[in-house]
Design a protein around this nucleic acid. Structure first.
Length: 271
DNA sequence: ATGGTCGACTCTCGA
């Protein structure tokens, strides 16, 4: 017998994806072919790089998705497209600290699932103010979880989180100890969020090495040589992680002509 | 290899 939520019918199977598109409008041909397969129910996007007045709403609506978005010119921007109704939509942290982070943070509810889609600041360098902002971003996420959620609920934090959780999640980690996505400081910041009660959904299903979501444009033939980083993630509360049935990297999207430097990562749930 | 390549936009930055 399937697990029943308290507030309605069970969702059944739900496929969720996260994709840093590095400019939504330049990636529409890839999204077109991908969404045409009709298998993605909820899609979190990051780095849309489009102002709200120019957001291609019709593209999603014409393909059966509701869409919520907050972006700016040239940088940042997040969106969620969903085939199921989205409620409780909110941008930013709602903590009054920094309204400028709205294009990096969107929350919504789909069925009984509380979704947090983030584009965590990359940080530039360990001694750069943006890195302090990045660490603070994780702290504020922890505070948001404590304020608005419970580890017993179905909570999913996903997105380009710009952190390599373990040495197995990047090629040549020994050369990257001072990198803002690898340094022990950012890993501790992530761990502090996860200790609230979140689990790596991808690793639950895929324990092997060499699975990445980002390959640097500047490394020659990085995809073919599989020199990459796993920085796009799904972190779920225990009940939701237990309801996950699989996860995988959509590697083919990265092979397409004019791809993003990231590719999509997919997680399946049976709720 | 402090290189390399994209995308948006300005002659440079962010990743």
């Amino acid at each position: 017998m399937g697990k029943r939520r308290g507030d309605g019918d069970p969702l059944g199977r739900l496929r969720v994806a996260t994709f840093n598109v590095n400019s939504l409008r330049s990636r529409l041909p890839i999204l077109e072919r991908w969404l045409l397969q009709g298998e993605v129910d909820v899609l979190g996007l990051q780095e849309t790089k489009v102002e709200d007045r120019s957001f291609p709403e019709d593209f999603f609506r014409d393909r059966g998705y509701e869409v919520i978005f907050r972006g700016q010119k040239a940088y940042n921007g997040v969106a969620v497209a969903s085939r199921l109704p989205m409620t409780e939509v909110a941008f930013g942290f709602g903590d009054g600290e920094s309204p400028g982070d709205e294009p990096r943070m969107v929350r919504c509810t789909v069925g009984g699932m509380k979704i947090i889609n983030s584009y965590v600041p990359q940080g530039k360098a360990l001694d750069h103010p943006d890195y302090a902002y990045k660490l603070r971003f994780f702290q504020r996420l922890r505070a948001l979880l404590e304020r608005d959620h419970r580890p017993e609920d179905f909570v999913l934090w996903m997105g380009d989180l710009n952190v390599v959780p373990t040495d197995r999640d990047v090629t040549h980690p020994e050369n990257k100890r001072q990198h803002v996505c690898v340094h022990e400081g950012v890993r501790m910041a992530l761990e502090d969020v996860l200790s609230w009660g979140l689990e790596d959904v991808f690793r639950r299903h895929r324990p092997g090495d060499g699975e990445f979501s980002f390959w640097d444009y500047r490394v020659p033939r990085a995809l073919e040589r599989n020199i990459g980083w796993r920085i796009d993630h799904f972190f779920a509360t225990s009940p939701l992680a237990r309801a996950s049935t699989g996860a995988f990297v959509e590697r083919e999207l990265r092979r397409e002509e004019r791809p993003s430097d990231h590719t999509a990562v997919v997680a399946d749930f049976s709720l």
